[in-house]
Design a protein around this nucleic acid. Structure first.
Lengths: 123, 123, 123, 123
DNA sequence: GTGGTCTAGACCACT
DNA sequence: GTGGTCTAGACCACC
């Protein structure tokens, strides 16, 4: 039953997902300090509590650690980060492939679409 | 500004998007009659008015037409359908590529990921 | 440095600990419904949010599961419950032994104290 | 009413309790001079007044006495010390037994747990 | 009625 | 200044 509009995941989960991507992509490098909860909360226009909750998810996942009074830091476990990055990429790939197959695209067609855009890029 | 959680598009737009995919993919073939508004609305757990509005969008786009008393039918304009299909695929492709780039994946890496999953499929 | 008063664990952790004991001891049997968050919160004189947080800990630990709109239920995984019960007992035992050793009691003395109280009980 | 989290005893009481244990265990032997209030207060990171108050409790209990200008000394009343030691041990034992009973452990099970740890110790 | 989420604002401990 | 905790009160989705 594909009737499931409104994705509308909780905000804290969406924030967590976003921060996760930033860590995975290296935008927040391993070991680096993260912006303060209040800062990020203000930037995103959410309550600090909500942002806190997002961080809690990442902390539980081991992607960051907290030093009381000093702030939060990205984990130095680059292997973990790499693994998360792979997992995220994999998830996005699968979602993409499913959607394309739903539109009736074969793997071959998808691949040619890809090379097509490559050429456009190089223009 | 990447701070843009959800956006929570209106339900009728989400429904329209879904129906559009079904037409583009051939699940609802050209010229075929569409299920009744009431039926689809009930399936989706949505007010018939909302579903009506979704249909209106598609009709305006030319993807379907109404025959009074007989119901709604998918357009026979296969060229239009094909064009919509291409556009949808293109949109999904771009979104996918942007996400992958955000994770630091190059085109080459993406392509090898693709061929990787190809092999898994054929197992 | 044994100078570390405070104990003062967060309330939600204390609540979680208490509920954990009740599950481990069978006071809340496997599969049984738990009282509503609001009820327990009122009983304990804390904010529902705080009680929620306690439940979240137990849920993460797998000791209970949530059925939206229906309530929370103790897990049916009796093996897990038994394991938690053992762990809790072990922790309390160790704390007790450390304290007794600090007071200069040997294992033999501790054991005889135990049998002493047994006799009192049977009076 | 089992809802009674923390209670968070006043610091001076926690300090008194700790010092009491040290006297009971012989770490501060009968008749021996106690460290200066200021020293202990500094060690514990506490205001000397607070530590003073802890001493006052013990003095009232007869566990130590003050010799003006010379300082504080542990009582020579070994009977009293022994009695306090017994009382403390008894309290801890009872607390432990209550907790274990709450977890559904019988005296027999508790005793076998004890002998179990004995074997581990001797490894 | 249930749980889930979110906000606004507060206080604490630490440094 | 940091993170951590807590409260009070609100709204939502579900059945």
């Amino acid at each position: 039953m594909p009737w499931d509009f409104d994705s509308s995941a909780p905000i804290y989960a969406q924030l967590a997902s976003l921060l996760r991507s930033r860590i995975a992509s290296g935008e927040y490098p391993p070991g680096s300090p993260l912006p303060a909860v209040r800062t990020l909360a203000a930037e995103a226009g959410v309550n600090p509590n909500t942002m806190q909750r997002a961080f809690a998810q990442l902390e539980q996942q081991g992607l960051l650690y907290t030093r009381r009074t000093a702030g939060r830091f990205v984990t130095e476990d680059t292997a973990l980060i790499a693994e998360v990055r792979r997992r995220l990429a994999r998830e996005k790939l699968e979602l993409f492939l499913i959607q394309m197959e739903q539109l009736g695209y074969s793997r071959g067609e998808i691949r040619s679409l890809l090379t097509e855009t490559d050429k456009e890029e190089s223009k």
